[in-house]
């Protein structure tokens, strides 16, 4: 089982915990956090020096994000991975000689932590445990884009996706399960009294590096974590490795620290 760690800032490179053979670098949910080319080069160089495989993670993108991606793609090569969370990004990256991966935002799953408490038949539970990658048709489309790996969340109701014998591999993220993302980021200008009632797609000073929120409601069996423009919850339980390998899941991605410890200066 390959072990990867997901970070979003080059400042996190210096304090990587041991035991990982791959670094995931970048944000899944905010194009404003995409690295500058120099930062990407720095992250890649660090990984090369430390014998770590490298994966660039990119978010869903507007045309502004796609323009940034165009500057990043030529820096990647050969065995480097692009974990794309946008079909447009995949279409663009297809022209480059790199390894393409469908990010977890592209691989739809029923992630709501309340699901195990719902009344459901076996047939419904089977659906809720699967992912879009359970569909051969989806894998066919990904194949046409040059994708050979998909990303998965560790659902509370269990993992029903089985890629055994499909030619695809999967990665499982732990412990933070993605629930939702927004572009009307509540963290934008958070902390400014004058902006406390303002919401929209607003310019920001990356206040996501200064604030996170833990949200609790009795309806939810787990607290939600509002970090940046996305909501997550923690699922610490990891299924048996043998069982995962049998399903084609051969990589675990540690993503405990999705918040950035300090402010990026660009953008």
């Amino acid at each position: 089982m390959e072990k990867a760690i997901h970070i979003q800032s080059i400042s996190q490179l210096g304090s990587l915990a041991p035991g990982f053979s791959r670094v995931y670098f970048g944000s899944e949910t905010c194009e404003r956090l995409m690295p500058m080319p120099d930062e990407l080069k720095q992250a890649k160089s660090f990984c090369a020096q430390n014998n770590l495989a490298f994966s660039l993670v990119t978010p869903f993108c507007t045309d502004a994000g796609i323009a940034k991606l165009k500057h990043l793609l030529p820096i990647l090569s050969g065995e480097d991975e692009l974990i794309a969370n946008d079909f447009g990004a995949l279409r663009l990256a297809k022209q480059h000689d790199i390894q393409l991966v469908a990010g977890r935002l592209l691989n739809k799953q029923a992630r709501d932590p309340r699901i195990p408490s719902f009344k459901h038949s076996n047939e419904l539970l089977e659906y809720l445990s699967q992912s879009q990658a359970s569909s051969p048709q989806f894998l066919k489309i990904l194949s046409s884009l040059g994708v050979k790996r998909v990303e998965l969340d560790n659902l509370l109701q269990g993992i029903g996706t089985d890629l055994g014998g499909t030619g695809f591999a999967a990665s499982l993220y732990t412990p933070l399960v993605f629930v939702a993302a927004t572009r009307m980021c509540l963290l934008a200008n958070a902390g400014k009294i004058s902006a406390s009632k303002e919401v929209g797609i607003l310019p920001c000073n990356q206040e996501c590096s200064q604030f996170q929120f833990k949200l609790t409601n009795p309806c939810f069996p787990k607290s939600l974590l509002l970090t940046g423009n996305a909501v997550f919850f923690e699922n610490e339980g990891i299924p048996d490795e043998k069982e995962l390998l049998a399903r084609g899941i051969n990589r675990l991605v540690a993503n405990k620290t999705l918040s950035r410890p300090e402010k990026n200066q660009h953008d």
Binding site: S196, F211, T216
Partner: peptide, 25 residues
């Protein structure tokens, strides 16, 4: 839904309160 919101931040208290108010928007 209404959520109880706990702020995780090392920012000054006043800023945290303002940010929390926005997080509940």
């Amino acid at each position: 839904m209404p959520f109880e919101v706990e702020t995780i931040s090392s920012q000054p208290k006043q800023k945290q309160l303002s940010a929390k108010s926005k997080a509940c928007l």
